[in-house]
Design a protein around this nucleic acid. Structure first.
Lengths: 227, 227
DNA sequence: CTCTTTCTTCATTGGATTTTCATAATAGAG
DNA sequence: CTCTATTATGAAAATCCAATGAAGAAAGAG
């Protein structure tokens, strides 16, 4: 789990970084909005901790910018109560906020809470609703809808793809993410093809459904991102 | 146990929060209806304390909104006697109400009372009625009905699953929730299978009953959620 | 203490799932 | 268009996992 901390005050940032990396997170720091956006564009993070009062570009703007390209979990941090009010609607797209001053343990707690919440979240679009808690998949078309039974592996694969619509996953990446014990998963990459085939067959239970899983020849598979 | 406090007056909210968190609850605060709904959508709470007089969206509306998606226990708070009258029918779906002014200890007492009441509540659907107080299970089909005797462990397992229909519980989670002393419960996960088997056999005493406990291969068990 | 009930473990069986494989279909390069 | 590389597919094989019956252990009643 890789976290980006954006905070201009050195002392605070360093404490945050220390606690998070002590808790097992990989941490990258940025001191202002510009650096934050730059770093964000060049690394792959799992979560962003974003102070609101930043020099030059403020935190809310940074948040909105990030949201233009990513659904990454964002936790906003501020000392000013008024900021909180403004944030309340999460209009900028943040997932949580923390009021300063806070203890490092609170920070860690919030981060893990947000990550947990996001990781087990329902995913839904016009045609598909998939719920990890119930481990079921609902296929929708107009006013019709059917619940599809899929196996654990099939579910994991679909969930993996659907978490990043449009992103192409190699077969290796799919195996890596969709299997619990990805270490000793010495499985032929062609096996993924079979699961995808079975998934497609199971999902295709209503008329006029779009193509959910798209083949990218020579690369792998991706989830259709214009639904 | 995680509680959401919705109250616009800072002094009151802070006192409430202080007492509840002192009593071992995890507390999240919201200052108005908008923030409340937003926070509610992003966190998983066990109970909501909701002031009626809120700026912009009032408490009753918030309550109704929450009820659209959740059965979470809600305690309404108000100073105006007229509100109480209106609330009496619990038209908005609240579980209890408190008249201002109140002592913090009353608040804590009500919260624990509501949680206890809810936690020990009867669960019922078309085919099954289970009563924790009497610790019995009634199986129904059309005009027939029979009471089934089950053991404590079997009862706890069924109750655990039935409190969250559709949610998949791992065997470990089932052991954790259905055993009093979950700490020293060093029990093989396969033991759960045997209890489930015995439960199924006992519950299956009438013709044409649906499947109550559903196996989710590779994960665990869930209670059938479309009954 | 003895008997009964309940709980847990275990070995086996059978069914579901996953994987592999062989072949057909398709896409893309040249 | 042809050839090659890649994916789709059906079916067999292997593996995994849950269901089950039985037996031993623990708990509880009398």
């Amino acid at each position: 789990m890789k976290v980006l901390i954006v905070e201009d005050e050195n002392s605070i940032r360093e404490v945050e970084a220390a606690y998070l990396s002590h808790s097992g997170f990989e941490v990258v720091e940025a001191v202002d909005g510009k650096e934050a956006l730059n770093t964000f564009a060049h690394h792959k993070f799992d979560l962003v901790i974003l102070d609101i009062n930043l020099p030059e570009i403020n935190g809310i703007t940074v948040c909105k910018k990030i949201r233009e390209t990513s659904n990454i979990p964002i936790i906003m941090v501020t000392a000013r109560a008024e900021d909180i009010d403004e944030l309340v609607g999460f209009e900028c797209g943040a997932d949580d906020y923390i009021k300063k001053p806070f203890t490092p343990s609170i920070l860690v707690a919030r981060v893990t809470a947000v990550l947990k919440r996001i990781s087990g979240a329902k995913l839904e679009n016009e045609y598909l609703a998939i719920d990890p808690e119930k481990m079921n998949i609902k296929v929708k078309q107009g006013d019709e809808s059917k619940v599809v039974e899929v196996t654990t592996t099939e579910f994991n694969i679909l969930y993996t793809l659907m978490k990043n619509p449009g992103k192409v996953f190699t077969r290796y990446e799919i195996i890596d993410r969709a299997y619990d014990n990805s270490l000793d998963a010495d499985i032929l990459e062609r096996t993924v093809d079979v699961h995808i085939k079975n998934l497609r067959k199971k999902l295709n239970i209503l008329k006029n459904l779009p193509e959910f899983v798209i083949t990218v020849i020579g690369k792998g598979y991706k989830f259709n991102d214009n639904l």
